[in-house]
Simulated scan of single mutants.
Amino acid sequence: MENQEIQITYTTTEKPKPNAESLEFGKIFTDHMFIMDYSLEDGWHSPRILPYQPITLDPAAIVFHYGQTVFEGLKAYKTKDGHVRLFRPNKNMERLNRSNRRLCIPEIDEEFALQAIRELVRLEKDWIPTAPGTSLYIRPFIISTEPYLGVAPSKRYQFIIILSPVGAYYKEGINPVKIAVEQTFVRAVNGGTGEAKTAGNYASSLKAQELVAEKGYAQVLWLDGVEKKYIEEVGSMNMFFKVDGEVITPSLNGSILEGVTRNSVITLLQHWGIPVIEKKISIDEIYQAYKDGLLEEAFGTGTAAVISPVGELSWNGEKLAINGGKIGEVSQRLYDTLTGIQYGTKEDTFNWIIEVS
Score class of each variant (00 low, 15 high):
125 K>P: 01
119 E>H: 14
108 I>Q: 03
132 P>H: 10
137 Y>N: 00
73 G>N: 05
97 N>Q: 12
137 Y>H: 04
124 E>D: 15
135 S>A: 14
95 R>K: 15
115 Q>H: 13
75 K>D: 01
80 K>F: 10
146 E>R: 12
65 H>N: 06
102 R>V: 01
91 K>M: 12
76 A>S: 08
153 P>K: 04
70 V>S: 08
96 L>P: 00
146 E>N: 10
65 H>T: 04
89 P>N: 14
148 Y>N: 15
124 E>T: 15
120 L>C: 12
61 A>S: 13
79 T>C: 11
64 F>G: 02
136 L>N: 06
147 P>F: 04
101 R>V: 13
62 I>Q: 12
140 P>E: 08
125 K>W: 11
93 M>C: 03
85 R>I: 09
103 L>D: 02
135 S>F: 08
123 L>N: 03
86 L>K: 02
93 M>G: 00
141 F>P: 02
127 W>I: 02
92 N>L: 04
78 K>V: 01
150 G>C: 15
61 A>N: 02
132 P>R: 15
146 E>A: 10
121 V>E: 04
77 Y>G: 02
143 I>M: 05
77 Y>W: 08
104 C>Q: 15
99 S>A: 10
79 T>F: 04
142 I>S: 04
150 G>E: 11
121 V>A: 06
76 A>K: 02
107 E>K: 14
139 R>E: 12
98 R>Y: 12
63 V>P: 02
149 L>W: 08
130 T>G: 07
100 N>I: 02
73 G>Q: 06
123 L>C: 05
60 A>M: 14
92 N>K: 05
138 I>T: 09
77 Y>H: 07
86 L>V: 04
136 L>P: 07
103 L>S: 03
150 G>I: 08
121 V>S: 04
77 Y>S: 04
146 E>D: 11
90 N>G: 11
